[in-house]
Amino acid sequence: MEILARVNDLSVRYGSNLAVNQISFELNSGEIVAVIGTNGCGKTSSMECLGGLRNPSGGTIAVFGKNPHTDRKEIYTQLGIQLQEAAYPEKIKVNEICSWFSSFYTNPADYKQLLTQLGLADKGKSYVNKLSGGQKQRLSILLAMLARPKMLILDELTTGLDPVARRSIWDVLKAIKSEGIGVLLVSHYMDEVESLADRVIFMQNGKIFFTGTLAEFKSLGKPGMSLEDIYLDMEGLL
């Protein structure tokens, strides 16, 4: 198992607000690590630092042994990312954006094959802004997969999707994991975490409150409690 990303004492400060407070964790190849916690607990800020899109206030991050902020263009040859807040140009078709993003990589994955795998084969000539929410999310995964990544960061990938679309994306993620890709999955859905995650990072007020395997996280609850109940209990909401 290869360590893909290593985070040590990462802090992110917005003015006087310490959004992320000295967190440390690792991501290995072939595992899905779920990052959970309420809105504003620092999940997205941490992921954006890992993707080199935000400069940390403190601590160190190494992705493939490199600093993602200074070596961003280099790490993106092996890192795929789906951002919570990002859009694509309007007036562009699915085939076009796939072929455009493919041109960024020296050895891109075959986007036509990925379109078929992700159930978008018949949407190639559709405009991106005409796709449904689930189709757009699957397109986000496709574009993140074009680099043939060793690591994926997926920030609230299935938020707002219907159960059928969510489960079809879970199947995609299971297939991705079986290829040895390491995935950091930010999610609010405990059924998703239970179905996909090998390990769980639970953040609260910018700190890691718990980190361990899914089984260890489950063992924190009383017998018979669902994962969502355990999560709510830990948030003090049950």
Binding site: L53, Y76, L83, E85, A86, A87
Partner: peptide, 17 residues
């Protein structure tokens, strides 16, 4: 429009920037 809609942010998450 690209700045506001965070289209550039998506391109920043590629080797092109």
């Amino acid at each position: 429009e690209y700045m506001t809609n965070k289209v550039y942010k998506r391109f920043d998450a590629t080797p092109v920037g």
